[in-house]
Design a protein around this nucleic acid. Structure first.
Length: 567
RNA sequence: AGGGAAGUAGCUCAAUCGGCAGAGCAGGUGCCUUUGGAGCACAAGGUUAAAGGUUCGAGUCCUUUCUUCCCUGCCA
């Protein structure tokens, strides 16, 4: 389904390169995550872009971890990220790389820059470096250590490497231009001393390269042609280019695109990690999280995520994509692949008064009207049933076509029934409906061609399996939780983002459902079996509700009523 | 003494060399239906941020203006 032949500004740039012969027609990209958190839907956009555009041009895409800061990075994240990229359906072959693989070569490149007089060891403190850097509107001042002799720099850099300095006592800086309007060019730090154990290189290094000094050269080493990154690196491109030009190695093209923003959620690692650490969600893979693992547990499919990324395209305009677009694509995909089943979430007991007490009939039901090969199943029907509470109204408004006193509706794949009596408890709450059925309508069709306006789902009370349902809503109750400058985004967390309903009643054959199985509960929503499920206790996550015209209608009517009242 | 980037329909994006401003989604109106789902049909939606210029012709080229975003980590 995913047809990733979208034209965009990136493919235009590649076309120009192919015409000019800059990379001899080669296209080689990379996806470069830092292993300091879990991947989210925004990363999916980048993953799809990098892998798909390479594939489009018959090229390759590497997976490379940007692991230059051991203070923040962990093996757990490396494993999770690898799994997520693979789950999305992408294959990097044997090209799994780490920036840390290049630490020796990066070190040699730094020495080379010192040798040609373009890098120096600075012993200013962190605060001093910040002061000397100047501001956005005023130039910086050169460090007193800037013009040390090359030999001294060489010796000092070695001393940094060998642990002769403590953290913060010295850095290696590129000698560029303290007066540049681009602050990244005001003698940027190349290496800092970090007293941390690296997940891959262990205790070998005391010094670690900064992102800017590692990324471009890593691209170069891997002979990446198009290094695609997000817009906030636009200001870094001159530095990216400066390192490559001065070290005189293969020079990829950096291209920046607008990262994804999604309504009703947050997509920054810093904020996502807070949601996890402060306990607002149950973990990185909480089904309310916009992480890949969260979406997976929520029941999203790789295809839906890829189609979504394909639809939103790629440009240089920062915007916010409405969440309903993501939901559109998961409905689209699940409509094709999810088997239908009947389940009642808000049960209302129905007794068919003219149905034999002990009779049980097996009704044939279609598993997936969109996919004939999914076949049919048998589901039991008996005298006492549950229907959805929302499918009955004692005093229905116009346009409510479902069950009401004296009205006839169809029970899907079963019979027409007519409601004759409403039983209530002492408080006046409806506890039971007494209905009669028409035996001639078995299977749901009337021999006399009489029509009913609604078809309801149902389960047989004696046969239904009890299960738990987790009904999710948006994690935040506002569209843009980050927009308020006074209030922290966590204040906008939706208190109803998860509602647990236990029990719900599902068709008996669902007893055998396995973790990860996806279903459409007819007329309600798509659900997936959660990993918390046990054979004796199924747990379903609501992936996404079906589009609900009735509710839309109600909301509209409600608004109109309100407006009328205002007048 | 600041540097960088972006403005096309409600949202996300197209528009070939300068040649009738389009699509998907959302919203609207109908149709259909053993899911009020899915599906189908139709209509609507625009001063292309603004002004000026070049041109037979400008979303596209030039000039100016406006708005929004990013940049002062030894994070990436």
């Amino acid at each position: 389904m995913t047809d990733s032949n979208n034209r965009n500004f990136v493919s235009e740039i590649i076309d120009e390169h192919n015409e000019s012969g800059r990379f001899e027609g080669r296209v080689h990209t990379r996806f470069p995550p830092e292993p300091n958190g879990y991947l989210h839907i925004g990363h999916a956009k980048s993953i799809c872009l990098n892998f798909d555009i390479a594939a489009q041009y018959g090229g390759l895409c590497n997976l490379r971890f940007d692991d230059t800061n051991p203070a923040k990075e962990e093996q757990e994240y490396i494993d999770a990220i690898t799994e997520d990229v693979r789950w999305l359906g992408y294959d990097w072959g044997d090209r799994l790389y780490f920036a840390s693989d290049y630490f020796d070569r990066l070190y040699d490149m730094a020495v080379e820059l010192i040798r040609i007089g373009r890098a120096y060891v600075d012993e200013l403190s962190t605060d001093e470096i910040r002061e000397y850097r100047g501001t956005l509107t005023s130039p910086g001042v050169e460090s007193p250590y800037r013009d040390r002799p090359i030999a001294e720099n060489l010796a000092l850099f070695e001393k940094m490497r060998d642990g002769g300095f403590n953290e913060g006592e010295a850095v290696l800086r590129a000698k560029i231009d303290m007066k540049s309007g681009n602050i990244n060019l005001r003698d940027p730090v190349m290496y800092r001393i970090l007293d941390a154990r690296h997940p891959r290189t262990g205790d070998k290094w005391k010094i670690y390269p900064m992102y800017d000094f590692a990324h471009g050269q890593s691209d170069s080493i891997e002979e990446i042609t198009h290094s695609i990154c997000t817009l906030e690196y636009e200001d870094h491109r001159p530095l990216y280019d400066w390192y490559l030009d001065n070290i005189e190695i293969f020079h990829p093209q950096q291209i920046e695109f607008a990262r994804l923003n999604l309504s009703h959620t947050v997509l920054s690692k810093r904020k996502l990690i807070r949601l996890v650490q402060e306990g607002h969600v149950r973990g990185w893979d909480d089904p309310r999280m916009p992480t890949i693992s969260g979406l997976r547990r929520r029941g999203y499919t790789p295809a839906a995520i890829r189609d979504f990324c394909d639809e939103i395209g790629v440009g240089k305009v920062k915007g916010v994509v409405a969440l309903h677009k993501l939901e559109y694509h998961i409905r689209q995909d699940l409509n094709r692949r999810a088997n239908r089943v009947m389940a009642v979430i808000n049960p209302l007991k129905v007794v068919i008064t003219n149905y034999p007490d002990d009779l049980v009939e097996e009704m044939e039901a279609v598993n997936n009207p969109e996919d004939e090969s999914a076949g049919t199943r048998l589901t039991p029907f008996s005298k006492v049933l549950y229907i959805e509470g929302d499918d009955f109204m004692e005093d229905p408004p116009r346009k409510f076509f479902r069950l009401a006193p004296g009205r006839e509706v169809r029970l899907r794949y079963a019979y027409f029934i007519t409601c004759n009596e409403v039983i209530k408890d002492d408080s006046g709450a409806i506890t039971e409906l007494r209905c009669t059925y028409d035996p001639a309508t078995r299977g749901g069709a009337a021999p006399d061609d009489r029509r009913v306006k609604a078809t309801l789902h149902w389960v047989s009370a004696a046969h239904a399996v009890k299960a738990e349902a987790r009904l999710y809503d948006t994690l935040f109750s506002v569209e843009y939780p980050e927009r308020d400058s006074e209030r922290d985004f966590t204040e906008f967390i939706n208190p109803d983002s998860m509602k647990v309903v236990d029990p719900i009643y599902v068709e008996p054959h669902l007893r055998d459902a396995q973790i990860g199985d996806r279903f459409q509960f007819e007329r309600l929503a798509y659900f997936v079996v959660d990993e918390d499920s046990k054979p004796e206790k199924l747990v379903f996550n609501r992936t996404v509700a079906l589009r609900d015209q009735w509710r839309k209608h109600q909301n509209k009517a409600g608004k109109k009523r309100k407006q009328r009242r205002k007048r």
